[in-house]
Each structure stands twice: as C-alpha cells, then as structure tokens.
Amino acid sequence: MEYFLQQFINGIALGSIYGLIALGYTMVYGIIGMINFAHGDIFMIGGFIALIAFLCLVALGVTAVPLALFLVLIIAMLITALYGWVVERVAYRPLRHSFRLAPMLSAIGMAFVLGNFVQIAQGARVKPLPPLIPGGLILIDNGGFVVQVSNVQIIVVLTTLALMVIFSLIVARTRLGRDMRACEQDRTMAALLGVDTDRVISTTFVIGAALAAVAGFMYLIYYGVIDFYIGFVAGIKAFTAAVLGGIGSLPGAMLGGLAIGLIETMWSAYFSVQYRDVAAFSILIVVLIFMPTGLLGRPEIEKV
C-alpha cells in the first residue's frame, strides 16, 4: 500500500508535466485542426533554455535559489514563446491555405530542424543540473517503507495547478479566450465578426510554447538531466495524452497527461521498466477502440 501511494505521487508529478505539454498539442489542434509535431521539441528547447539561463545566472553570481529559479522560469517562457511564434510564422502560416497534409509535413520537418539544431548546438550528451531543491515531506514512515513527497514534486504539482487555473480563466473569461474559442468553433465566422484570426492563432502558439517551457523547466529540475532526445519521447507521450483525453479538449489534455503519467509509473513499478512506453500506447489504443473521441472529447458531429 505504501509502495502504491509512493508510485501514485510520482505518477501525478510526471503526469503534470505531460499534461502541460499536452495542452499545447490540444490547443493548436482545436484552433487549426493540425497536430503540431514540433511541439515536443519546443518543450525540449524550453528545458535547454532553462538550463542555459540557470548556468548564466550562476555565472553572474545569482545564487539565491528561489530567485534564480523564478528568473529561469520567466526567461525560459519568454524565449520559448518566441520559438513557438517563429515556428508558426515560418512553417505553418504560409501553408494555411495549402492542401491538408502540407502543414503536417511541415510540422514533422520542423521537429527535425529543432531537434537537430539543439543536438548540434548542445551536443548529444545528457546535460546534468545539480539538485537545487532538496528535501521533501515524509507522509508515512512505518519503519519499513517511507512514503515521501519531494519538494520538487510539490513545486511541479502546485505550478501545474496554478497554471491550469490561470489558463482556464483566460479561456473562459477574457476577450482573448473568447476569441480563441470563437476561432476553434468557426474560424470564418470569427473573422466575419472582426476577429484577427491570424493573430489569435499566433497567440495560441505562443501560449502553448510558454506552457511547454514551464514543462521543460519542471522536467529539468525534476530529473536533473536533459538531452535533445526528450523532445521526441516526452512529446509523443504528451501527444498520446492529448488524444487519450480527447484532442481539442483542454481538461482532457490535463486528465490524459495525469493518466499517462500514472500508467507509466505504475507499469514500471509493478511490471517492467522496459515496456512502460508500450503500456501507455496500448492503453491509448484500447481507449480509442471503445471511446474513439477520447475520455473528454466530443463527437465530431457536434461541430457545425
């Protein structure tokens, strides 16, 4: 039981990271009906920028860990958001009125470009970061087994929760959020009403990339290592999470992220670490057979 509880905590923390990445996939899909295959690499770049920013701050003598982490997070979000914006401008917008598969091919190409760019610029070796946030909360200590929530896990989960709340409020309550929903439901009509749809789409990429940067930052402080390949691995799991939750659904992305995080952790804990990725994808296939629109997705017919 204690072992299960510990795995549960680990799964939630990992799932939060997947969920934040999945939000970016699902937002872009909702608004332009395209899978942004480069999004996983945007997440990876967010992690690298966080690492570089941290090393720069240390070199500059900023040693107070909370301040440094906060600055790193902001810097990573800003620069990664810029990457997201540029990717949309360069690779997707020119193809918006092209044939259906063109933006998807462009997205796959963009994923390679970003992945290889980081591989060349940073090298293929795993980059470590010294553990910055030690300690944790001991929940259960019955002599034999200790159930513990590390401080990093607390930060990961609380940050994710806070971002989810802020993000939901933006979507539900602000003019920008309403314009985003309008574009998602009927882009032509939104334009007829005066919504600058290109700008809304750009903003969607920017927000998605900023959230991915937070995920990259948290991945970095959680695992303490990063390499260019995580863009592909975590990206594909987050994409799976988005599909599992129902692509296009924002709560679905978060739920799917948590589900994938939990499945992966539990599978590694009780069966075999080698097959944990297979487990997540198998469950996805099973869910899609019985619920083709995912857990919280809506049937396509409801679209006008």
């Binding site: 009509m189 007829l192 009403l193």
Partner: peptide, 21 residues
Amino acid sequence: HDIARRRIAQSPEGRRIFPRM
C-alpha cells in the same frame, strides 16, 4: 476582419452560431 471593423455586419448563410458559447 478589417472589413468587419468598418462596421459591416453579416448574418451569414447557415447562421453560424457558435454552438458551445
């Protein structure tokens, strides 16, 4: 969208109500 901002408004064919708003 700039044409709309000249305050020309259209109720288009098929009405195009935002169904989930």
